[in-house]
C-alpha cells in the first residue's frame, strides 16, 4: 500500500461524564489515532468501552473533555457535511419515504428537488433498494433499513463515513450479506470508513486495520493490520488465527 494522507487525527482525546449523583466517570482516556484516507478501519471492544463515544465526538455530536479531533487540518467541533455517521438503528425519519430519507441531507443543504431525487436514486440503486423507494421505514426489514441508512449517509457525499455498529441489530445471515455489500460500496466509492463493532469476525472480514479497545476507562489497547486478500474467506487459517488472537486480547481487556 502506498503512503496515504491522514484524514482524521485524534489526539489525547478524553471524555468524562458526570452521573446524576454527581460522580464523574471516565468514558475514554487519552485516545490517539490516525485514520488514513480511503482506508477501512474497525474499532472492536467490549460493550461500554467508549467506542461509540469516540465516533460521536469525531462526528461533532459531542464535545470532548480534553484533546482534539482534526479532519484534514480543521478541528471538529460540530457536525459537518464531510463526516457522515450511520447509527445502529432507528435513525430513518419514519414520516418520510425511503427516497426522501436518502435525499434528506441534500434537502438540508438546499439542493433542489430534481437533483436530490437523482442523487437519492443513484444511491438507492447502489444498495439495491431502488424498488422500495416509495416505501416507508416501518414497512422495511431491519437489513433494508440499514441499507437505506447507508445510502442516506453516502448521498451527502461525505469524505469520511463513521459507522456505529451498523449491523449490530441484524440477524447473522443479513449481517454477512450487508458486510459484503458494504465492501462493494466501499470499493466503488473509496470513502474512508471507520466502523465500530463488537464482532471480531466482522472486523477481520472488513477492515484494513483493527483497533482493539479496553474498557474502564476506554482506551486503545492494541492495533493490527489485516493483510488477508479480499474477497476474504472465513475458512482460511489466517482468519481463524487472527480471530483467536483478538479474542484473547479482548479477554485481557475486560
Amino acid at each position: 500500500m502506498t503512503q496515504q494522507n491522514v484524514i482524521i487525527e485524534i489526539e489525547k482525546l478524553s471524555k468524562e461524564y458526570s452521573t446524576e449523583r454527581g460522580e464523574s466517570f471516565l468514558a475514554i482516556d487519552n485516545i490517539n489515532l490516525k485514520i488514513q484516507e480511503n482506508s477501512f478501519t474497525c474499532i472492536v471492544g467490549p460493550s461500554g468501552c467508549g467506542k461509540s463515544t469516540i465516533l460521536r465526538i469525531a462526528a461533532g455530536l459531542e464535545k470532548a473533555t480534553s484533546g482534539t479531533v482534526h479532519y484534514r487540518s480543521d478541528p471538529v467541533t460540530k457536525p459537518c457535511g464531510e463526516i457522515g455517521l450511520v447509527f445502529q438503528e432507528y435513525s430513518l425519519f419514519p414520516w418520510l419515504s425511503v427516497i426522501d430519507n436518502v435525499a434528506a441531507g441534500l434537502d438540508f443543504a438546499g439542493v433542489e428537488k430534481e437533483k436530490r431525487d437523482e442523487e437519492a436514486t443513484r444511491h438507492l440503486r447502489m444498495v439495491n433498494m431502488l424498488d422500495f423507494k416509495d416505501a416507508y421505514p416501518h414497512e422495511l426489514s431491519g437489513g433494508m433499513r440499514q441499507r437505506v441508512a447507508i445510502a442516506r449517509a453516502l448521498a451527502n457525499d461525505p469524505d469520511v463515513l463513521l459507522m456505529d455498529e451498523p449491523f449490530g441489530a441484524l440477524d447473522a445471515h443479513t449481517r454477512i450479506l450487508l458486510q459484503q455489500e458494504l465492501l462493494k460500496v466501499w470499493e466503488l466509492t473509496r470513502k474512508t470508513i471507520v466502523l465500530v463493532t463488537h464482532s471480531v469476525d466482522e472486523a477481520i472480514f472488513l477492515a484494513d486495520k483493527i483497533l482493539i479497545m479496553a474498557s474502564r476507562p476506554g482506551r486503545i489497547r492494541n492495533s493490527l493490520e489485516v493483510n488477508i486478500e479480499r474477497p476474504r474467506s472465513r475458512a482460511i487459517p489466517e482468519f481463524g488465527k487472527m480471530t483467536d488472537y483478538i479474542l484473547k486480547e479482548l479477554e485481557y481487556s475486560m
Binding site: L85, E89, A153
Partner: peptide, 10 residues
C-alpha cells in the same frame, strides 16, 4: 437518534 441523524446530515 433522529435528531442526531439530522445534525450529522447537516
Amino acid at each position: 437518534t433522529l435528531i442526531d441523524s439530522a445534525r450529522v446530515l447537516g
